[in-house]
């Protein structure tokens, strides 16, 4: 177990004694609202099971899975960047953040492909209750994703001049925590929208 100055800080906060401080407040509040949305989805799904399953089956399962792998891989790169920051490896920090950003950008591209396909087929928020949740959840998640990409870009530029600053580690940990929240939300959204109603092909 790490001790002393090597011990990981909590929530990137200066107030180390308070675990529910700093960015964690933002993340917890956000997760509560998403949890409410997930609950709403499940309640409404129970009322219109056939519609939800039929609609879920029309989603591109493989694209959803690709999104999951993209975000988790990008999240892993941020872990390596935070680890490099703790060890004072400045070049590695920037490289890992850059890789995380480039991989993460793939999520944005795939979302435009997916939404473009839905709009091309005249599917929108008003098609049915499932698609209302689909667009609301993926849209809200996409805004979080954009915020995360902005945070990655910020920390990359910030590291050019301030990588050795005393508050740098706290900042990169805060960015890392936020980016993992973006991962986590997709880890929950993916099974809910893409897997739950998916009709798996029969075994040969």
């Amino acid at each position: 177990m790490a001790t002393g100055s090597d011990a990981p800080s909590i929530g990137a906060s200066r107030e180390q004694g308070n675990p529910v401080s700093g960015i964690l407040t933002f993340i917890i509040a956000d997760l509560i609202v998403f949890a409410m949305l997930f609950t709403g989805f499940m309640v409404d799904r129970s009322h219109e099971l056939a519609v939800f399953n039929r609609s879920a089956n029309a989603l591109d399962f493989h694209l959803g899975l690709a999104n999951l792998l993209i975000l988790v891989t990008s999240g892993l790169c941020v872990v390596f960047a935070v680890s490099a920051a703790r060890e004072g490896r400045m070049t590695a920090i920037r490289n890992w953040i850059l890789v995380a950003f480039v991989i993460g950008a793939g999520f944005g591209v795939s979302k435009f492909v997916e939404w473009g396909d839905k709009f091309a087929h005249d599917i929108g928020m008003h098609t049915n209750a499932f698609y209302m949740y689909y667009f609301a959840l993926t849209g809200a998640h996409f805004l979080h994703f954009l915020g995360g990409m902005g945070a990655l870009a910020f920390i990359w530029f910030y590291s050019l001049r301030h990588a050795g600053a005393p508050d740098f580690r706290g900042k990169i940990e805060a960015v890392g925590l936020y980016w993992h929240m973006v991962d986590l939300l997709w880890v929950l959204i993916f099974p809910l929208l893409y897997v739950l109603g998916h009709q798996w092909p029969a075994c040969p």
């Binding site: 906060s13 107030e15 308070n18 700093g22 407040t25 933002f26 956000d30 805004l143």
Partner: peptide, 18 residues
């Protein structure tokens, strides 16, 4: 203003985007 209150304020403002 404690950091949690600051982040709550930012989050609350942005949550209005719904």
């Amino acid at each position: 203003f404690p950091r949690w209150a600051c982040w709550y304020s930012i989050w609350a403002g942005l949550s209005f985007l719904f």
